Simulated scan of single mutants.
Amino acid sequence: MKSFLFFCGVLISSFAYAQSSTGEKAVLDIEKQRFEAQVTKNYAVLEKVLGDDLIYNHSNGNQDTKQSFIQSIRDGKQSYDAIEMLESKVLLYGNTAVVSGICQVKAANNGQTINTKLRYTDVYVKKGPQWQMVAWQSLRLAN
């Protein structure tokens, strides 16, 4: 009986770990898609992966909603040339994921060229089958 209970415990732990790993990978995949969509101006992907209630805090202190963030890319006020994910870690809490990482961003903001490393934290919530980013906060690191 003890070996059966031990086996069940190992099986449940393995299943929970596999679920966690799968969820972490799914969130990182969405994060990569979002970065790529910002660079390529793929508005369909941005509409899908950004939550309607998004709060986007830029490293310069400016804040955007989903609508104002996408519109700033459409208008050319915000233009991303490259975003490279250097580090990332995902913590899952049920249907919520907290991502912390570092990325290298080459962009233009109102015509001013930016080439900087950012430390960021963002939050994703799983809405049905789709993970959507609902919060972003970043700060500049010394290059």
Score class of each variant (00 low, 15 high):
residue 87 E to G: 09
residue 124 Y to Q: 02
residue 43 Y to Q: 06
residue 103 C to E: 12
residue 84 E to C: 01
residue 121 T to W: 00
residue 96 T to H: 09
residue 140 R to T: 15
residue 53 D to N: 13
residue 56 Y to I: 01
residue 106 K to C: 05
residue 8 C to R: 08
residue 68 S to R: 05
residue 7 F to T: 12
residue 71 Q to P: 04
residue 34 R to N: 09
residue 50 L to S: 06
residue 114 I to F: 09
residue 101 G to K: 03
residue 58 H to P: 01
residue 136 W to K: 04
residue 130 Q to Y: 10
residue 57 N to G: 06
residue 113 T to F: 13
residue 18 A to Q: 08
residue 51 G to F: 04
residue 106 K to Q: 15
residue 39 V to Q: 06
residue 132 Q to D: 05
residue 32 K to P: 03
residue 138 S to E: 09
residue 64 D to G: 00
residue 46 L to A: 09
residue 9 G to K: 01
residue 22 T to S: 14
residue 113 T to Q: 15
residue 107 A to T: 09
residue 118 L to N: 13
residue 97 A to R: 02
residue 32 K to V: 07
residue 46 L to H: 01
residue 94 G to L: 07
residue 61 G to N: 00
residue 93 Y to P: 00
residue 143 N to H: 11
residue 98 V to T: 11
residue 104 Q to M: 06
residue 114 I to P: 02
residue 41 K to T: 12
residue 35 F to G: 07
residue 16 A to Y: 05
residue 83 I to P: 01
residue 80 Y to S: 06
residue 105 V to G: 03
residue 68 S to L: 08
residue 59 S to Y: 05
residue 64 D to I: 00
residue 87 E to R: 14
residue 125 V to G: 03
residue 95 N to W: 03
residue 129 P to Q: 13
residue 89 K to S: 10
residue 51 G to E: 02
residue 114 I to C: 08
residue 126 K to D: 01
residue 29 D to W: 00
residue 138 S to R: 07
residue 47 E to V: 05
residue 84 E to P: 00
residue 21 S to Q: 13
residue 78 Q to E: 03
residue 46 L to R: 11
residue 75 D to Y: 00
residue 19 Q to F: 10
residue 111 G to V: 03
residue 46 L to T: 08
residue 118 L to K: 11
residue 90 V to G: 05
